[in-house]
């Protein structure tokens, strides 16, 4: 097609096809969702098993899994940033929001470590989980994440009234709701987009 017989319909086709092509390069946000979902799931469930079934005194050490998680996230984010040929506002918003969530969770971990108020740690983490999920859902326009946030907030309220052992199981359940299920949905959506 040359520009002499470039029609109005052709213009619309070009605009539509290019906007669709730009969408293909959105970051694989599912990676972070699945990484943190599975890490929190295994850590919470692991601590429950070590504490309640095996009665291991240093059951809390499973949460050290979060350190390699943080390192993997930084490396993946850095590599994706170098590899990507396009910067979208959505990717930029997600990466800044991811950093803000990571910093907030790290500071809260320090606060709870020093204050030894572990009974209140999970309700606060769950509320923050809900916040991360809700805002991510708004940025990625994924309604499922916003519903997952509502579930997290409900679990956060429930967890105030239950023992630490049940809180661990609720934490594992919220990891499935807020990160693992939406992560697989996002991955399936991206694969469908690329097909």
């Amino acid at each position: 097609m040359n520009d002499d017989n470039f029609s109005v319909q052709d213009s619309f086709r070009v605009i539509q096809s290019m906007i669709d092509k730009a969408k293909e390069d959105f970051a694989d946000n599912a990676f972070f969702s699945l990484l943190w979902g599975w890490l929190v799931f295994f850590a919470a469930l692991g601590q429950y098993i070590l504490r309640e079934i095996i009665h291991y005194p240093h059951h809390y050490l499973v949460w050290l899994l979060m350190i390699p998680g943080g390192i993997i996230s930084i490396i993946y984010g850095y590599k994706f940033g170098r590899r990507t040929k396009v910067k979208t506002y959505m990717n930029e918003a997600m990466s800044f929001f991811g950093i803000a969530c990571g910093v907030s969770f790290s500071i809260l971990s320090l606060v709870f470590s020093y204050s030894n108020a572990w009974h209140f740690a999970f309700p606060v983490y769950l509320a923050l989980y809900g916040l991360c999920s809700f805002v991510s859902g708004a940025i990625l326009r994924l309604q499922l994440l916003r519903w997952a946030a509502v579930i997290c907030w409900a679990i956060a309220i429930i967890s105030i009234y239950v023992g630490y052992d049940v809180q661990l199981l609720l934490m594992a359940a919220s990891a499935v709701t807020a990160f693992i299920v939406p992560g697989y949905v996002m991955r399936a959506k991206k694969r469908k987009q690329l097909a």
């Binding site: 097609m1 520009d3 605009i15 092509k21 730009a22 910067k87």
Partner: peptide, 15 residues
């Protein structure tokens, strides 16, 4: 123009 419109359409949605 097909190519210029394509370039602008790509750039309109990204930073």
């Amino acid at each position: 123009s097909q190519l210029r419109l394509a370039v602008v359409s790509l750039l309109i949605g990204v930073k």
